[in-house]
Design a protein around this nucleic acid. Structure first.
Lengths: 181, 181
DNA sequence: TACAGTAGAGAACGTTCGTTCTCCACGCTA
DNA sequence: TAGCGTGGAGAACGAACGTTCTCTACTGTA
């Protein structure tokens, strides 16, 4: 099997399994089984589980943000579209919260590279929201709403948290507009 | 040693260690060592680690909410005081985010009792915020801000998230007041 | 002083898991 | 065809950990 294809299959398996069950609950053997890649090849592609976890997080970050960005752009870059995208996400049957927040909780003392990957994701999302709205402090407020809604939807199982956050965001945006004129 | 005192020392040790390093990273032996309670007694008080974790969460919930409630009451039950309390919390040197969110991330598939303890905490906090503000939807918005600020402060290490959330909360409360009159 | 019961210290057991090693089959070159 | 190197399957190793067991010391009682 091609090394590139092996890497792809490994990442695919890792993302599915790690997100669904948590990183610690999934052994390398489960990744091997789901990917169909031999253990030897697995350790050639990713010399340690830490490498695989880091790659999983970096890849998930890219895909997650690409999906959000695409959806919002299709809605005229309206910041409120972020919360509509969240609502769709929360209703997916295998929604289990934010992979990065979960990973942060999972590793009491994360490896520097894991921690960096987690922070990178949050930094990128914050930067994206600052692109979407004129005022950085406003963007940060929306970011807080996004994170809160995600956590509460995951724990409580209620996708309606997205609607609550959306209402709040609408009020904040309107108030900000009024203040800036 | 008294069974009651043993239980108290075990819970004290468990809370410190579990919160600081994560539940999975702390072995029963570490709890024994820190508490000074023998393993035999430990398993008499808590027949399994799951029992100890559940007790840890329930106890932390009580203490956390009591601290918040006391602070806010001392500030005239002003909802914005919640965010000042958060700011103090975020600046504590051993702040590591919300123990319940972390636990949720840690256990991909939590035991029913663990999941119930996590949800109970969030339900109680939501109920408390609904006591503080007149309008349940407004309370839920503030709740989302609280959770978001906590997550971002933990991951980014920036206590200033509390100030951002406080600003947002002030806007939401003022807008709500205007609408209700 | 003899004894029954309890408690503590720590060894031991069984499992899980990350990682490495062994062995064998297959394909390429002379 | 002989030999060599690569790759896969799965055994094996070593550590960590939840849980239980063993052995010893001590306390209170007749």
């Amino acid at each position: 099997m091609d090394p590139a294809e092996a890497t792809e299959r490994l990442l695919e398996a890792a993302e599915t399994l790690f997100y669904a069950h948590g990183v610690q609950a999934v052994g390398m053997d489960a990744v091997r089984e789901r990917s169909g890649v031999s253990l030897k090849r697995l350790y050639q592609c990713f010399p340690s589980k830490d490498d695989l976890v880091e790659a999983y997080l970096l890849r998930r970050d890219e895909r997650w943000r690409a999906s959000l960005r695409g959806f919002v752009r299709a809605h005229g870059d309206d910041p409120l579209a972020v919360f509509e995208w969240l609502y769709d996400w929360f209703r997916e049957p295998d929604f289990r919260g934010c992979a990065f927040i979960n990973s942060f909780g999972e590793f009491g003392e994360p490896t520097p590279r894991i921690l960096a990957a987690i922070r990178k994701h949050k930094d990128e999302v914050r930067a994206y929201l600052r692109e979407l709205v004129p005022d950085p402090p406003l963007a940060d407020m929306l970011f807080s709403l996004v994170e809160g809604a995600t956590v509460l939807a995951a724990i409580g199982g209620d996708p309606g948290e997205a609607a609550t956050a959306r209402e709040a965001a609408a009020v904040l945006i309107k108030a900000n507009k009024r203040r800036r004129t």
